[in-house]
């Protein structure tokens, strides 16, 4: 039951992009086609879950016992950066097909603040390992959901007659704002 609550809260109520503003850069940058946004969502899910797992273990078995909590930011970002590199190399060797699908998105993920954000949030919220991983997975699904919805809207938007000054970034932001408004309707489902 607890886990279901965590999942629903992370996907709908506190959607990572539309309510917490994590990962807005790829959200605005990559979400112009449904195919690419699905690829991005897949890659992000993979990295977020893996990064949360590794950073959780590091925090509880290395940083906390040694009293190095102030090193959290530096350690986490290094772990994420090297993890992304490693995933890229392993994927290239093991599964060229998957690498073809996800490859181009992987380098972008290091600077996706959702990855570092989730890793820090899991520590801040005092989740245990399983809760943390479930939270990370659900957050990533929420990210993918927002990305795919946005891509669907933007594909339609290309046909619309947008006022000159609003073309490009402003209309995307406005669309995201209306989406966020819609997602606010989920508030109150949990608690």
């Amino acid at each position: 039951m607890e886990y279901i609550l965590i999942i629903i809260a992370a996907i709908f109520v506190n959607n990572v992009v539309l309510a917490q503003f994590l990962g807005t850069c790829p959200f605005l940058g990559v979400s112009s086609k449904i195919d690419t946004s699905l690829g991005m969502a897949g890659a992000v899910t993979f990295v977020i879950v893996l990064a949360t797992l590794v950073t959780f273990l590091l925090q509880h078995y290395v940083l906390n016992p040694l009293g190095l909590v102030f090193m959290q930011t530096i350690v986490f970002i290094l772990v994420i950066a090297s993890l992304v590199q490693m995933v890229e190399i392993i994927l290239k060797k093991l599964s060229p097909a998957l690498y073809q699908a996800l490859g181009i998105f992987l380098p972008l993920i290091t600077t996706n603040c959702a990855v570092l954000g989730v890793a820090i949030l899991v520590i801040k919220k005092n989740y245990n390992l399983l809760e943390g991983v479930v939270f990370a997975g659900a957050t990533a699904i929420g990210f993918g959901l927002a990305l795919v919805i946005m891509a669907g809207i933007r594909e339609q938007l290309e046909l619309a007659n947008v006022p000159k000054g609003m073309k490009g970034v402003p209309i995307s932001l406005l669309t995201a704002g209306i989406l966020a408004l819609a997602f606010m309707g989920f508030a109150g489902i949990v608690k």
Partner: peptide, 22 residues
């Protein structure tokens, strides 16, 4: 109140960038 909440951030920034472009 919506401008303090999440949707307001997107909408306010959208119009500000549009005005800046203009």
């Amino acid at each position: 109140l919506v401008f303090i909440l999440a949707p307001g951030a997107f909408i306010a920034l959208a119009y500000m960038i549009a005005i800046f472009n203009k």
